[in-house]
Each structure stands twice: as structure tokens, then as C-alpha cells.
Design a protein around this nucleic acid. Structure first.
Lengths: 127, 127
DNA sequence: CAGTATCCTATTAGATACTG
DNA sequence: CAGTATCTAATAGGATACTG
């Protein structure tokens, strides 16, 4: 999501810092797939059908700048570019796993659209 | 971030689902503070100085709609509203902890602005 | 194949003022 | 105190066309 700038809760928001890095619309997915191995640009596209070329490129660049993804360009023709996780990127495995596991439970417990119970009503007599 | 809509990788992106729910600019922080106990609106503001009133309200509403936060309104004057995590919200504890822990290491390993090594250079002779 | 370049829309967030 | 209402600015994201 490239919120890498303004971040003044100086050295106090590791939670936000992590979300800044992995919180783009497709970054979770990209990381998830790269955790299973090196992939070429086109292979990533196939695994994430709804991402546009532009967004995939952009997010990969951001992940690269964050030091999580390595971009290996082979000087061939046709060109070949392989993406893989850096050692630091690999350390995200546990985090992604936690997100995935929680999400599975959350999606399981929740019907797609609960259509809000009634909105704004939860009053108690003051004590 | 309220990307709760378009989400067609039907039942396949629990990672994204989780990020949709906790990925707002301030949601991680809000959740983090509420994990330590019930807080009033104003108390949350003090703990997250840079959030605007509007954003805090909005994110709290979204978290409430996601079923993670409970909003308790006391019919007093001056008004008092307390926010706490629902049981489902509590289940996020491990996730937030993982984000926090990873973020601490990440921030520790990374100087604020590495000023990019040289940009776009990582070629290898094709094999 | 693996991108860039443009253009454009939608979503998010911030500032400021007002209120039950 | 705990919000709403407006208005505006900044970003993120998408569509499409073109290229080394």
C-alpha cells in the first residue's frame, strides 16, 4: 500500500510497519505464492488472475525495495525474470501463516453479508 | 481499509481477507490498544495521537461491522462510549502479536531510509 | 516475456467546523 | 465527550496501448 512514508509514532508501531509492508491489495497473495518457491513474472500472473500487469509490477517493486523480494533478471531473449523471497522475506512465513489461519476461521464463521443486525443500538443505563 | 467488497478469489484468499479486516491505516494500532483492555473514545485518541477524530470513528465502525469490536454506549451526560474487543476480536491476539514481533525485527534491521543500493541492476548471464 | 506509459476513477485520509 | 458533516487532497488501483 506504499504507506511507507508518514510514520511518526517513531519506533513505536511495529504493527503498522508490518502492515505497511505487506498491506497492499495483492501483496499478501504475492508473498503467499513466493513462499512456495521462485516464480517468473508470468507464473505469478497466472496464480493471481485478477491482478493487472501494472499492479503486479508495482507491488513487486515495492516488495523488492522493502528487501523482501529478490528480482533476478536473466539476459536472455525472450526475457526471463524470476522472483523469489530474500532471507528476510522468508521470515514472513509465520506471519503469513497466522494471517491465513485466522482468515480461514473468520471466513468460515461469517456469512458473506450479515446485513448488519440493526445498526447503532447498544445502550446501557449509566452506572 | 474497507476493501471488503471485491474479493472474487472465492474462498481462496484468507490472507487477503484478514488484511481487509485489519489493514486500515490505523486498525492495527486500534486493535493493539484494545487488546490491552476496554477504552473510551478519548482514551484511544490519546494513545494514537496522530489519528483524526473522523478516522478513528470510521475505523471503529468498520471494526464493529466486522464483528471484532463492541461499542458500549452509556446513556449519560456527558456521553461515555467504551470500546472493547468481542470474543472474535480477541482471537486476533496471536495475529497482532505476530505482526508486532516481525515489525520490531524488521525495523531493527532496517535503517529508516536505505536510499536504494543503486536501483535496477541484478543481471545474470542466462543459463 | 516482462514490462512502461498514460489516462482515469475510486477509495482513503486530512482539515475544519458544528452538535446532541 | 463523542461524535457528524463538508470539502478537499492524496493515493491506490484499473484499463488500455505500446515496447525492448
Amino acid at each position: 500500500m506504499a504507506r511507507h512514508k508518514t510514520y511518526d509514532c517513531s519506533s513505536g508501531c511495529p504493527v503498522s510497519a508490518t502492515l505497511d509492508v505487506i498491506g497492499g491489495k495483492w501483496k499478501g497473495l504475492i508473498l503467499h505464492h513466493l513462499l512456495e518457491g521462485t516464480l517468473r513474472f508470468g507464473e505469478l500472473r497466472k496464480r493471481i488472475p485478477d491482478v493487472t500487469q501494472r499492479m503486479l509490477t508495482q507491488h513487486l517493486r515495492e516488495l523488492e525495495e522493502s528487501g523482501l523480494v529478490h528480482r533476478q533478471v536473466y539476459a536472455e531473449v525472450p526475457p526471463r525474470v524470476e522472483y523469489s523471497l530474500t532471507p528476510q522475506g522468508q521470515t514472513l512465513r509465520g506471519v503469513i501463516a497466522a494471517l491465513k489461519s485466522w482468515g480461514e476461521t473468520y471466513l468460515g464463521r461469517k456469512t458473506p453479508e450479515p446485513a448488519a443486525p440493526k445498526r447503532r443500538l447498544a445502550v446501557a443505563s449509566g452506572r
